[in-house]
Write a protein that binds this DNA or RNA. Structure first.
Lengths: 333, 333
DNA sequence: CTGAAAGCGCTTACAG
DNA sequence: CTGAAAGCGCTTACAG
């Protein structure tokens, strides 16, 4: 597996490495047609393939960006990744995807790894920790963009759902279905992950707008493996909620599991609604009402902005921009 | 965003680049303790982070492998990827995942890209085309391993399901449920994608073993967007099948869609079984019986073998190994 | 229109 | 125990 290098091509075509390089980089407007032909022929005959690593070292640009997903288990991951890849492909930029698994240590490891690999920029769904690490990246003016989550101390552009509106859609839908006793389940709030906080706030605000009192009992902030027992707790209150708002798809899965195992009649005995559409929402029995995030659009926009940043990385970021996207209610019954 | 290099560290610590390099590579058994301390201090003070690209160029090893998935829409993708990443992480190897989208052109583009990036090896779910490209990789003794699919002309190790057994499990299960009229739906067979072919063969063989005649009418090989009309066709035959074997999860999704839209009673009016477990099989109403592939194990094994190959890439492959994995029936009713 | 030279940031024999 | 030198495979001013 001996590799053919630019020197081999140069020798074979009887020109200098410089000339071959000009050719492979498409700068041959002024090149003798014979030279061009000879180089082309040599490349084909030798099966020459450029060494991207060597090129990157020289030009100080890897034409590669990284994306760090907080948790790939979300059903939305493929769409976001796909959207990012689509725009990057068009610009001949490669994408490396990493899964932080909601684990700040993993997140940090990946960031260090990606920086060591000299990636041109990063799109990240931050776990919420590693603030100092991000801060130093901001100071270095390293191109970076957040998705889904906001970190207040950091001046990093972010692409997010209008979470308050999402909660408003959810609560209003349930109220319209004659529900007044509405619970909510979110993952833990300790790491101050913005969508969780904002969705809870939105939920409280929406209840208020509908003249419904917030009941502490109806609010659950629990780990994913405690969701079932949390639903058990809520549904076994003296005056239990008749509907529960689940703030993401993973919680939805747990809820469906509980509902099924306990033969709960949905929606008669318990109604649910969740943020993030799932691929089986349509075919489920009964069909699931969800609130869709425009992930594909968000991914595209984030990628575009990041690519722009990688090109004018000299320009210092003046102020953080936060792009909010409208959620969409998909009422399926 | 001026980068700190090894030279900066050397200057700052008053040693040579060689010595810094020895230090960062952990070869400092013989190093003066003072020198070690000075270097450590300089690295910390300057915030030095090695340039992986430069290192890769020098050592001719990127410590990175690629995986090309034929179609990430399969629900199994996360597990396989996760398994591969787990073993690679343990060996400090990075992973780049690409999605060929069942598109041979994309597949080719990605392979070229990954080779240009000097990846140490590839795990691929081949689309079935690009045989010549793979052939040249085999000739070059480039480390590569196939998953899920086999290409007969190519001497590439492969990790696959025992597809015949999967079909046997499916058919036997249905027969045990008193079905004698059993259909099958697969994607198109033109590209000779081995699991499709083998599952059909296994289906025929299993029917035969149960003394049931194969009926041409009961076999559908169609594109994913034609699955619904194919089910329509089969269920509207004079003597329609009472059960259908769906050979993958994407076909299952379409089938469920059809069944739901047409208010078909499952399993009374039509029973189904499918290969590849889906995340909602348990919570679906009614629960879905599936045939599980040990994707996690397959991914781990494939990664281990590939890493091994990247280390003795001088050893010429003598003969292709095909590793077959046992499917597992998950009867959920 | 083409080539010689320098250099990107590392590592690795080798010398001392 | 430490350093000078060569070189990985490219690209890019610059000279001619």
């Amino acid at each position: 597996m001996k590799k053919v290098t630019i020197s081999d091509v140069a020798k074979h075509a009887n020109v200098s490495k410089s000339t071959v390089s000009q050719f492979t980089n498409g700068r041959y407007h002024y090149m003798n047609i014979e030279t061009k032909k000879r180089i082309k022929k040599s490349i084909d005959e030798l099966g020459y393939q450029g060494n991207f690593i060597a090129r990157s070292l020289r030009v100080k640009r890897t034409s590669t960006i990284g994306v760090i997903i907080a948790n790939v288990l979300h059903f939305s991951s493929p769409s976001v990744i796909r959207a990012i890849e689509d725009v990057c492909n068009k610009h001949n930029i490669h994408v490396i995807v990493c899964n932080a698994d909601e684990n700040p240590h993993k997140e940090k490891k990946y960031i260090n790894m990606l920086q060591a690999k000299q990636l041109d920029g990063l799109i990240v769904f931050p776990t919420g920790a590693n603030v100092d690490l991000y801060k130093s990246m901001v100071v270095d003016n390293y191109p970076i963009v957040f998705m889904d989550r906001l970190i207040n101390e950091l001046s990093v552009d972010a692409f997010l759902l209008d979470n308050e509106m999402a909660s408003h859609l959810a609560v209003s839908y349930l109220v319209k279905q004659k529900h007044q006793k509405i619970g909510i389940i979110t993952p833990p709030l300790d790491r101050k992950i913005s969508p969780r906080i904002e969705r809870i706030q939105g939920y409280k605000k929406a209840l208020h707008d509908h003249g419904i009192n917030v009941r502490k009992n109806y609010i659950g902030n629990v780990e994913i493996d405690e969701v079932e027992q949390e639903i058990y707790r809520m549904t076994h209150l003296n005056d239990p909620p008749t509907a529960i708002y689940l703030i993401n798809d993973l919680i939805l899965m747990e809820a469906l599991n509980y509902i099924k195992k306990n033969n709960i009649n949905m929606p008669e005995e318990l109604e649910i609604i969740s943020v993030d559409d799932v691929p089986f929402a349509d075919i489920y029995n009964p069909a699931l009402t969800t609130i869709r995030q425009p992930w594909f659009k968000m991914g595209k926009d984030a990628a575009h902005l990041l690519l722009k940043k990688t090109h004018d990385s000299n320009k210092l970021q003046v102020k953080r921009e936060v792009y909010r996207y409208k959620p969409e209610l998909i009422a399926r019954r």
